[in-house]
């Protein structure tokens, strides 16, 4: 199994970028994606995306002319915008890992009025809906096409 650990420099860049992607919000009462618990989950969840994330971070470092995390604060946003505009599969993988860790955090889920639990075994309620809507279709004559 190859080593799947980011260097400290790469991890710092990723954390800095995660904070820009999803910043904390006092209004919504949620942490940012760079918050310690969420970021630890991100680092532990790279798995199949590790190579692409590393590639994306290399692109980010190139655009930054060095470590993204070392840029002056007013430079971070424009470099991140250029990075995002370039797109590509590595960026998609980086986005995916950040989002899938952020949107399973208990605090985030509660802020969205979502129960922080797995679907099973409790399941969910689903209303039947108005079946009288179907009355009009019930009155329609069969229209399937007969075949010889």
């Amino acid at each position: 199994m190859p080593d799947q650990t980011l260097t400290s420099g790469e991890a710092a860049d990723l954390r800095c970028l995660a904070a820009l992607m999803i910043p904390a919000s006092a209004r919504h009462g949620v942490p940012g994606a760079d918050e310690a618990t969420i970021f630890a989950d991100i680092l532990a969840s790279l798995e199949r995306d590790f190579a692409d994330v590393r590639k994306a971070l290399a692109q980010l470092a190139t655009l930054s002319g060095g470590r993204f995390a070392d840029l002056a604060p007013d430079r971070c946003a424009p470099v991140a915008a250029d990075f995002k505009a370039a797109g590509g599969a590595p960026l998609a993988a980086l986005n995916r890992v950040v989002l899938l860790c952020y949107y399973r955090d208990d605090r985030v889920m509660r802020s969205l009025n979502q129960e922080p639990r797995p679907p099973f075994p409790k399941g969910h309620d689903l209303e039947q809906g108005d079946w009288s809507l179907l009355d009009r279709i019930r009155e329609r004559k069969p229209f399937w096409r007969a075949a010889p």
């Binding site: 820009l20 999803i22 399973r104």
Partner: peptide, 22 residues
């Protein structure tokens, strides 16, 4: 679900990075 919405909407350019994200 919450994750699929976030990932798909980000890929479609509908969900931004930054202060407007939430």
């Amino acid at each position: 679900g919450s994750i699929m919405e976030a990932i798909n909407s980000t890929a479609a350019g509908r969900l931004p990075w930054g202060a407007d994200h939430h």
